[in-house]
Design a protein around this nucleic acid. Structure first.
Lengths: 208, 208
DNA sequence: AAAGTTATTGACTTCAAGGTCAATATAGCA
DNA sequence: TGCTATATTGACCTTGAAGTCAATAACTTT
């Protein structure tokens, strides 16, 4: 075992834009799989197959990378939801589709990340900023959906903001609990639908 | 500055039970103030004024201490809620009081701890067990409250378990969001009340 | 009062985190 | 073809986490 070389071959030189994107993509994959806490200099470097130092070269601040990673993942998901709801003919249909999508079991990784973010942002200012931003964007998204329904005469409420905010909170909480409570994961969302139907003056069952 | 002694005086010898409780109490205080992640050998030792080694002597496993800390805090709170609701004359009153208490702003530290726990339990088996236990106990508590109301003819539902589970999820989520969204913290809970009134066949406004 | 049990401590180890700094190798340009 | 800017690396530092182990000091018991 004289020359057993466990050495990694030198990473090929790449244009900064490409390498940078490669590193950020790796950070996102790690965050999706093992959570934002797992996004470290070492883990990102190892995944890409470069030295820690190179990661520092591109991302001189880990807190910032974590925040950016969260931001991108969350913004991507929001864009997806926008696209899906925009495609629906009525606001009621859109809200039904949105609720169904948000309560879907396959979204567990994102749910876990949001739970993580509430904790981590206590100690990471950049992340806290990103969280606020994303919460605002989500809030605005749901408000505009409600307003769309009001303009069309489908929904009726006098406080779209409050309804939107609590809607998002309820969904987040139920999903978080389902993360631990495997058994109950199937039946998530009945109360949310009833609550929204009631709150927006919809006929019972409209959202199912 | 030859003899500037920053040395801590030797801690007085105490009976194991007392010292043990002292350490666990310190862990709880730290958890309440700075979160469960802040409960470390060092922080507990420093707070009590003893060496790290002594903490190890009493708590040979940090994961276990963190789990026990969470368990005690959460069980204390549950006991408090039990006492408060038991004191109410009707189940409707009890539910109103419970909801109000759970949505109270002063409960933010506990909310933060629960959010933390969902994240940490991914990497701490003992903690995961404690979380499951406590969720079960809460679930059972709310279910029995609902059943009390059904026996008295106040509530009507065909799935107390599902209603209880989602009730807790909603409250948790709304509180978590309020942790970040200072502005909206005042108006938490309208939807939850409406949802529960609707779900349990109560007259609108019964829970306000 | 002496002995023995054990609460308490200090020195040390291991591991993983973020980060610095100077050296090296390589791709693209002159 | 050779130069040069810079992408990439290796060696090193600091901090804070958990944990081990033998030594010391303080009660309790005989």
């Amino acid at each position: 075992m004289t020359a057993s070389s466990p050495v990694r071959p030198r990473a090929g030189r790449k244009p900064p834009a490409e390498r940078g994107e490669e590193l950020r993509a790796a950070a996102r994959e790690i965050a999706r799989r093992d959570g934002l806490v797992a996004v470290t200099l070492r883990s990102v470097a190892e995944r890409v197959g470069v030295t820690r130092t190179l990661v520092v070269h591109y991302e001189p601040n880990m807190e910032a990378l974590v925040a950016a990673t969260f931001r991108t993942i969350a913004e991507d998901e929001l864009a997806e939801m926008r696209a899906e709801t925009d495609a629906e003919a009525t606001a009621t249909d859109a809200l039904r589709v949105l609720t169904r999508a948000l309560l879907d079991t396959g979204r567990d990784e994102v749910t876990a990340m949001w739970a993580e973010v509430f904790v981590l942002s206590r100690r990471n200012d950049a992340l806290q900023g990103a969280v606020r931003d994303l919460m605002d964007q989500w809030q605005e998204f749901v408000v505009s959906l409600i307003e769309r329904g009001m303009r069309a005469g489908e929904f009726h409420t006098d406080d779209a903001h409050s309804v939107a905010w609590q809607y998002l909170g309820m969904i987040d909480g139920i999903n978080s609990h389902a993360l631990v409570n495997y058994g109950a994961a199937m039946e998530r969302g009945r109360l949310v639908c009833h609550a929204m139907e009631h709150e927006l003056g919809l006929a019972p069952g409209s959202l199912r």
